[in-house]
Simulated scan of single mutants.
Amino acid sequence: MTDQDLHAALIGVPGSRRDLNTPVLVVDRPALERNIARMAAFAAGKDLKLRPHAKTHKSVDIARLQLAAGAVGLCCAKIGEAEALAEGGVTSGLLITSPVVSAPAIARLVALNASTTDLMAVVDHPANVAALGAAATAAGKPLKVVIDLDPGIHRTGVASAEAAVALLQAIQAQSGLTYSGLQCYCGMQQHIESFADRKAALEDRAAHIQSVIAALTAAGAPPPIVSGSGTGSHRIDAELGIFTELQVGSYVFMDGQYLACDIAGAGAEASPYEASLFIDARVVSANTPGMATIDAGFKAMSTDAEPPQVLAGAPEGSRYFFMGDEHGAVLPPSGEAAPGLGDRVVLGAPHCDPTVNLYDTYHVVEGGTLVALWPVSARGRSR
């Protein structure tokens, strides 16, 4: 049965969150909307544009909320995510932040370009520039491309100012391509917990980015946009004067990794954003004293971060441990009673992007009431 089959009848029923079939992905709508509003206000106050990253939520519904709050478009990690948003009506201002290289993917890219407005894709290799240029020329509509700059991760992007200028020249040689700017995402720095340490690391990377901007400008092509930054770095990046737009993503949900960071330099406890994404689970076995087994294991959340915090349904200070694909253990502090059979336990989401990708549906709640079911529109659209 689908989530719609299981839960549509619960929408609007007071207290219906407690009756959801578990494990289930839950979004607190008021908290989500506060996060969206706060980031939009921050960007506007710094005269920066906002192009949030949809790889976090993969949701047409959340994208619409971000656009309504003033975002100029959405970033997508893969062309499949961009296609999913476009299918849902989000057809303007999409930026694909990973190179699109294979022949089938390039064919899809030019088709998407034909049906959307202001689509952009990153490039980091002359051969890819040539392939995109030929495809766009044949399709009859120029494709906007953004030079991807390697911030030092060696994952994607050109590695130097010289390579950026050479790539610019390759783009300019293609009549089917339009040079649209520069992208640099400093992913390694996002989760440095100390604000001071994160600031120092980002200032080091800023000098590298500025040297590339200067080289492109000297070559007669100052980047129309400089896109980058993230949830962990945006407060610092806004003061560096490099970026014209922010690619922030996880701020909508604030998973455990980001909640551990001092985002604004006021202590981690004073984050300007709040948790809005949760996993509701239920005790399915309570035969071992001092422990309860819940129905959320490896298949219910990402495992590349610390185990989730137990937020509700168990004594304060209870800890979660993975117990396999389908199960987890909740251990209360010594002397405290474990939750009982059938009790609901609320977990904070670990790394939100891969956690979201495990679910078909967001169960949107206000208080204890289910108010909507939103599809995870781009779930599995990783190609």
Rank of each mutant, 00 (worst) to 15 (best):
T2V: 07
R18T: 14
T22K: 12
P30T: 13
E33I: 00
E33Q: 10
R38M: 04
A43G: 00
G45N: 02
L50F: 00
R51A: 01
S59C: 02
I62F: 03
I62M: 03
R64G: 04
L65H: 05
Q66P: 07
A105C: 05
I106Q: 09
M120K: 14
V123P: 06
T137F: 12
G140K: 07
H154V: 05
R155G: 08
T156K: 12
V158Q: 03
A161M: 01
A161K: 07
L167M: 10
Q169E: 15
Q174D: 14
Q189R: 10
D197H: 14
K199R: 13
D204I: 02
A206L: 08
Q210L: 13
Q210M: 14
A218N: 07
I242N: 02
F243S: 02
F243W: 04
E245I: 11
D255R: 12
L259Q: 15
C261H: 08
D280M: 14
D280N: 15
V283F: 00
S285N: 14
T288Y: 08
G297Y: 11
S302C: 02
P308N: 02
Y320A: 10
Y320Q: 07
G324T: 01
P332R: 05
E336N: 05
D343M: 11
V346D: 08
G348T: 07
T355H: 01
L358I: 14
D360L: 06
G368L: 05
G368E: 15
V371M: 03
G380T: 11
R383V: 08
